[in-house]
Amino acid sequence: MSESVVLRTIGGMLFPYILVYGLYVQMHGEIGPGGGFQAGVLVAAAFILHSLLFGKELTDRLLPTWLVDLSMSLGVLLYIGVGIVGLVKGSYFLDYSVLDPTHPAHAEALGMTLVEAGVGLTVASVILTMVRKVNGEPA
């Protein structure tokens, strides 16, 4: 936890903006540079900054460990789940176009958005977990 008032004030002001920027990179990944991986790292960085400035306990209350562990596996499951939907609907694995039979092109974009969300979830929670565990937080 940082003792410096300047660091805590500026960091506290920056925290939501880093989060929103991470979400922007996530949502905007199809149009601009970025995507799930970059967004995940940004979101994780926001929470790491939060824990450096305000202490591990507060961040833990904001984002409990079980939730991070859960979203870590949920991300991969979301990715594989989208792939399996393709299989169930009678096409090949990871064929997004069957998600919306009336408009395959839109379904492709939808599938990519879902898949990127899965990547983002996993990356954010894995990086957060790594820093937390190395920091010696009780499991």
């Binding site: 199809e30 149009i31 995507g35 792939g83 839109h106 492709e108 599938g111 990519m112 898949v115």
Partner: peptide, 20 residues
Amino acid sequence: NDFGDHVPNAVTAVLASYRG
């Protein structure tokens, strides 16, 4: 195109779809 013009960023298209 393939993605209904939703995905102008070729890198994301390659990463998430062609190289899924």
